[in-house]
Design a protein around this nucleic acid. Sequence first.
RNA 1: UGGGGAAUAGUCUAAUGGCAAGACAGCGGACUCUGACUCCGUUAAUCUAGGUUCGAAUCCUAGUUCCCCAGCCA
Length: 557
Amino acid sequence: MNELDRPTNFIKHIIEEDIKTGKHDKIVTRFPPEPNGYLHIGHAKSICLNFGIAKEFENAKCNLRFDDTNPVKENVDYVKAIQDDIKWLGFDWENRLYFASDYYQKLYEYAVDLIKQGKAYVCSLNADQMREYRGTLTEPGRESPDCNNSIEMNLELFEKMKNGEFAEGEKVLRAKIDMASPNINMRDPVIYRIKHAHHHRTGRDWLIFPMYDFTHCLSDMLEGITHSLCTLEFEDHRPLYDWYLDNLNTPCHPRQIEFARLNLTYTVLSKRKLLELVEEKFVDSWDDPRMPTLRGMRRRGYPAVAIRKFCDLIGLTKKDSCIDVALLENCVREELNETSLRRMAVLDPIKVVITNYPENEVEYLEASNHPKQPEMGKRKIPFAREIYIERDDFMEEPPKKFYRLAPGAEVRLRYGYVIKCEKVIKDSMTGKVTELHCSYDKDTKGGVTPEGKKKVKGIIHWVAINHCQRANSIKLYDRLFTVPFPTQDKDIDYKTHINPNSLSVINNAKLEINLSNAEVGDCFQFERLGYFVVTANNNGYLEFNRTISLRDSWAKV
RNA sequence: UGGGGAAUAGUCUAAUGGCAAGACAGCGGACUCUGACUCCGUUAAUCUAGGUUCGAAUCCUAGUUCCCCAGCCA
């Protein structure tokens, strides 16, 4: 590690220190998703952190562990999708795939141990009563009527819970800690609850399920996790995390460290809200390219490496923060700029006839696949008398500094000739411009400016009408919300800020012919427009998503 | 108003008692067969008030603001 690429954050400092002092000679982290939803960019922060530590430090590993302790919310589809997303992001848990449900038997035994020590009891209070007994933020709670029952009775009742002899909600197992604790998590928290539900891995073998706090610390311990990294809201669960480990006979005691979760401008990142967007049809699905899910971003065309780069750049602290989505977009552009082949495409075509160019002639102009990377090669583009240009690249009454085409004005066709607009033809009914007649200067081919002629500043993209490929659909995506902080005002539903123009579909785009054999997943830069990914090509039936536009300093003025 | 956390340019992150630095965003310019990319320049910050110290973003005291916690969710 040299000075420059030393990725430093407070957690890595702690780990470095733990290695230096000999507290640990190997490091184990874990990424612990609950399989009840799809992964989003916020999870990517945690994945990059945990797996990044495993990559960065010697003798370090990161486990993937599904935190599957709530059978009613979880299912195998999520389990599969999550693994798929992590692989796509570029990380590997090798043979260390674990499930909290694998530990159910051991967890049960630990719970029995707690009962035998007189530190856990079966409680008959129902949910409402328990809430009442718990007290409030400012008032202490009251002890459960069951908290002094005998160990024998508790063992027997817990056994019955396990055997399905009680209905859901009838009993719970609770830790006996302190009903007057200022930390509400310590007021005799629930350890096990009854759920007569089908679990995606254990089926009906278990009818009682351990709660997060109990499960998580013990799973960490069983796997020999050294540093258990989680988000800030678990900070006041740490005393409970430690309590379970301190009160059970365990070979190690992982350290929980909390960091701030990711927030991004112009988006929402809570599973609940994302689910709402899907269910209420604001987007098509979890993998809609407007979603901040990893699947959505993947479909949108975001490269995994760009997301990893982003996660490196944003840093890691305990401060609540909101990252400007422009930083993510910058990472995407930076990566795509390096790797994408250049092509030409006209999204909103207007016909141009080059009146002094011979009819029926076709010539093939040479164009480079990447202006800065000659090793990416060249290709030929057919040019003829009739072409399409972008409607935006012509203005009848251009403002100052408009470098493109206008009546009497000259512009260069990218990789081709300089043309001059001689005549504008309009629809007599609507007044809409339907066609432009231009002349070309044959001495200007391929970027040449003849001696004594003034250099033309404007350069526009084009395709030849009879030698192009239609794009059946190009989806243009924009930010999902119109305001940077959609959830900021608690009195206004964040969904009122949804951008009505977050998706527009173009059905009449014309592509350079070289795109006709593009393959699904290929990314291209359409020159002057943006980066586009191929989402379908069925014998010339072509579809694209626009991943992101190019920066456009003209649009600003 | 109980407990737990956090405060550095517009945003995010460094600086661990010794020149407040970097990225993104913004602005200006150069370059350019992409109004892209690249390059150069530039605006802009230590929550407040005291204290310790030759010296404080950093240590101490008091305050202010913001976030989290009362699921048999994670």
